[in-house]
Simulated assay, not measured.
Amino acid sequence: MGWTSMTSAGMAGHANPKAYLDDQFTYGRTLDGGGTRGMRVIDSAFVGNRVWYAAAEIIQDGEPQYVIALVCLVKWNPKARDGYVFGYKEMEESMGPCEADCPARILRLLSPTAKEHALDWRRRCLERLRMHGRKVTDGMRLRFPRPISFGDGHSGTDFIVMKKGEKITFRNGDGRGYYRITGFRDMSWTVVPETKVHRTIFAAAPAAAIAA
């Protein structure tokens, strides 16, 4: 499907994209042949101010059937000059969305599926969660599989983490410079074990025998 755009009036009183989409995808309809079919958003998240992820329960004749993932690309600009402050493009997991940073709590709510594109999307989400879950501490040395080049002429594979709160920057492998590596959590890298030099302690020599 294409993009749906609207002014703030079209959002029917909802204050933000998450509230609007939660309501938009919770509904019930009467079928022409009798019976009802609907959907209910169980949980959702608006990630990075650009993608809405949701676990949505499919309901048939008032009975829950299964839970799928919904993904909406979002454009949100409350100060848009043309008045169109909100736009979204809807997909569901079986369409194989490129966006794959769905929170773990939503993935845990989904029903088993045999749909190939949905399975691939779930695997990509889990892999991204794994990569973003890797622990990074101040002073840690990371090694990337390919050299990373910078404007100052430096190019290297080894970098030392400089962490202050949530802010992470790097020094080169020699402990010099000041570098930012955008999206490093999405990259492959390994931790270089720290080599520790231990002080050698020699056993005390036995006391000399005292001549009689």
Rank of each mutant, 00 (worst) to 15 (best):
L31C: 08
M39G: 11
D82C: 08
I68Y: 11
R81F: 10
M39N: 11
V67W: 03
F25M: 08
G62C: 02
L70E: 05
F46K: 09
Y27P: 00
G28N: 15
A55T: 02
R81S: 15
F46H: 10
Y53L: 00
A45T: 07
Y53V: 01
T36H: 00
E57L: 08
A45D: 13
V67C: 04
P78W: 11
V74C: 09
K79N: 14
F25Y: 13
Q24V: 05
Q65T: 11
A55I: 00
V85Y: 06
A69S: 12
I58C: 11
I68T: 14
L73A: 12
I58P: 01
F46Q: 11
I59Y: 02
G38L: 02
I59P: 00
G38S: 04
V71W: 03
Y84G: 05
W52P: 07
G28W: 10
L31N: 13
L70W: 03
T30P: 03
T30N: 08
I59W: 03
A80S: 14
G34V: 10
Y84V: 09
I42W: 04
E57Q: 15
A69M: 08
N77P: 05
E57T: 08
A56W: 01
A55C: 04
Q24H: 13
G38N: 04
E57W: 06
D22S: 01
W52G: 09
G28S: 15
K75D: 15
C72K: 01
L70A: 08
Y66A: 14
F46T: 09
G48I: 00
I59S: 01
G83W: 06
G34A: 10
Q24R: 13
R50L: 06
V74N: 06
C72L: 06
T36D: 00
E57F: 07
D43A: 15
T26R: 09
K79T: 15
G62E: 02
S44C: 10
G83C: 02
M39V: 05
G38V: 02
G35K: 06
V85W: 07
G35A: 02
G62D: 03
G48Y: 03
Y27A: 00
E63G: 02
S44D: 05
P78A: 07
G83N: 06
L70I: 12
D61M: 01
D22I: 01
V41H: 08
R40G: 07
Y66T: 13
G38M: 02
A69Y: 05
G33D: 13
R50C: 14
D23L: 03
K79Q: 15
I68P: 02
K75L: 12
D61L: 00
A56F: 05
R50E: 15
G38I: 03
R50V: 10
Y27D: 01
I58Y: 13
W52I: 07
A54G: 11
W76P: 10
L73H: 13
Q65G: 06
I58E: 12
R37G: 12
G35Q: 02
E63H: 10
G34C: 06
V74R: 07
A56P: 05
L73E: 14
